[in-house]
Amino acid sequence: MPLSYKARRRWSLVILLVGLPLYIVVAVNVVALFDRPPLWLEFVIYVALGFIWALPFRAVFRGIGKADPDRRRP
C-alpha cells in the first residue's frame, strides 16, 4: 500500500530532522577511521555520500513540495 501524501510529508520531516543528522555523524566518523585523504578526494567522498543517503528515500520525497493531490478543492 503506497503512503498517502500526508504520511509522506511526515516521514520526510522525520528523515530530514532525525535521519540526516545521524547519517552525517556516522559518515564523518567512518571517514575519520581512515588516514585523511587528499582534500579533493575527501570532497568527492562527502559528495557521493550526500547523494547516496537520499536514494532509498526517493519515493518518500517525491512530490512533497507540491500541493496535496489527495485534497479535494471546494
Score class of each variant (00 low, 15 high):
I45H: 01
R9E: 08
D70L: 11
G65F: 05
R62V: 05
G50M: 06
L49Y: 02
Y23A: 04
L13H: 11
L39N: 11
R72G: 03
P21D: 08
F34K: 07
S12P: 01
R71W: 08
R8I: 01
P2I: 03
I24G: 04
G19Y: 00
L3H: 07
A32K: 11
I24Q: 02
V18D: 06
A48R: 03
V14A: 13
V31K: 01
L17R: 14
L13T: 11
R58F: 08
K6W: 03
R71G: 02
V14G: 05
R71L: 15
L17P: 05
L3Y: 13
Y5V: 00
R8A: 03
V18G: 10
L20I: 15
A67D: 10
A32E: 10
L3C: 07
F61L: 09
A27D: 01
L41H: 05
V44E: 09
L39Q: 13
I45M: 06
L55G: 04
N29G: 09
I64G: 05
R10E: 12
D35I: 06
P56D: 03
R71T: 06
R73H: 09
Y46Q: 07
R72P: 01
V30C: 06
L20H: 04
Y23N: 01
L22N: 07
L55T: 14
S4K: 04
Y23R: 00
G50L: 07
F61Q: 02
V14P: 00
A67Y: 10
R58Q: 13
F51V: 15
R71F: 09
L13G: 12
G19D: 05
P21W: 04
L33R: 13
G65H: 05
V18C: 13
P69M: 07
W40S: 12
R8Q: 10
L17G: 14
V60W: 01
L49G: 05
A27K: 02
A48K: 04
R10P: 00
V26S: 04
P69H: 11
W53H: 12
L20A: 12
P37A: 10
L22W: 11
D68W: 10
P38E: 15
Y5A: 00
L17H: 08
A67W: 13
R62N: 13
S12K: 03
G19H: 02
I52K: 07
V60H: 03
V30I: 13
R58I: 08
A32S: 13
L20N: 02
N29M: 11
R73Q: 09
R62T: 08
L17M: 14
